[in-house]
């Protein structure tokens, strides 16, 4: 794969770079797949793909919300803490049954998103500051609510985390449906167009009468909601609510997936398929290094290399 890409870069830089921006992440995924097929024993099995798909679920769902926020030119650092908040809610409200507990967790996520959105859209606080506050406060609140890990024995929640339908785990179904919904929203709805328009030029959006603030608010609420979904699913998979360690540093993985997938951090553009591929790329990378039993420090170095490569390609775009 790279053999095809390399000469192209040398031959025609102006054509190759946009092409890399568009398809680089898919090339990365394909390269890792080929590498694993050749060098990793037992890679080509249904079980293995199921494991990877299940493990990528939380980051994938977070990165959907993150992509929308980044498309508006914002950022949401609080997603990991919102996951912790929803994990705590599950444990606190499970006495009313799994459905109520999940609903409460989702409401908590939406409420956290609403606070972020209100601060960003209406109070004019910078996204990085507003969501940083929620990142710290949300984690603190969830630890106050549930100071230690709490095992979950409820069969409904455990089934959600470990069960499957038609041979595909529920977690994978849910993330697939969410991806489809977000793709539809971005491509086919007015709301999707507004997100990109605001990210491209907020002032122009305001002047042409777009409901800029309302749109921003909804975007942050959606991001909080998706983070809560990720928190519920991660809790179900772990069969325990663990607000202390759930979602720690996961916001960085989500941002990485979005950026590697070709959505520029300055906003105005969004690529959901690329984001999905970005999340899959990072998951495959980590899994490859673990399966080959390389030291964990290598994983961090490899992730750095991918991010730098992605940012380098994005820089070329900015220069033109």
């Amino acid at each position: 794969m790279t053999a095809i890409g390399m000469p192209a870069v040398r031959v025609d830089r102006t054509r190759a770079v946009p092409w890399l921006q568009e398809y680089g992440v898919y090339i990365g995924v394909a390269a890792l797949l080929v590498f694993n097929l050749v060098f990793t024993p037992h890679f080509l099995s249904l079980e293995n793909f199921r494991t990877q798909a299940v493990q990528v679920t939380p980051v994938l769902i977070l990165s959907l919300g993150m992509a929308l926020v980044i498309a508006t030119g914002g950022i949401d650092l609080s997603v990991g803490s919102v996951m912790a908040l929803s994990a705590a809610m599950i444990s606190l409200y499970l006495g009313y049954g799994p459905v109520v507990a999940v609903l409460v967790a989702l409401v908590a996520g939406a409420a956290a998103g609403a606070v972020n959105g209100a601060l960003v859209a209406f109070a004019g606080v910078q996204a990085i500051v507003a969501t940083l506050a929620m990142m710290i406060g949300g984690r603190g609140l969830s630890l106050v609510l549930l100071p230690q890990l709490d095992g979950i024995r409820n069969p409904g929640i455990r089934e959600l985390g470990a069960g499957e339908a038609l041979g595909v785990p529920y977690l994978v179904w849910i993330s697939a449906v969410l991806v489809a919904v977000v793709v539809f929203v971005v491509r086919r709805t007015v709301f999707g167009r507004r997100i990109v328009a605001i990210g491209g030029n907020r002032r122009a959006g305001e002047l042409s009468g777009l409901p800029v603030r309302r749109t921003l608010l909804v975007v942050y609420v959606l991001c909080g909601l998706l983070a809560a979904v990720a928190g519920v699913l991660a809790t179900a998979r772990l069969q325990a609510s663990d607000p202390n360690s759930i979602g720690r540093l996961i916001e960085l993985s989500a941002i990485t997936a979005v950026v590697v997938g070709g959505t520029p951090l300055q906003g105005g553009r969004v690529r959901i398929a690329g984001t999905v591929a970005g999340a899959v790329l990072m998951q495959l990378l980590v899994s490859t290094l673990i399966k080959h039993d390389l030291p964990p420090s290598w994983t961090q170095i490899a992730q750095t290399a991918v991010i730098i490569a992605a940012v380098y390609v994005a820089r070329e775009r900015g220069r033109k």
């Binding site: 606190l92 009313y96 606070v115 209100a118």
Partner: peptide, 17 residues
């Protein structure tokens, strides 16, 4: 409103497993 919602969820009528 958001903070109140969070505080309510946090404080009121929780019932663990």
């Amino acid at each position: 409103a958001g903070c109140t919602a969070l505080a309510l969820l946090a404080a009121s009528c929780a019932r663990g497993e």
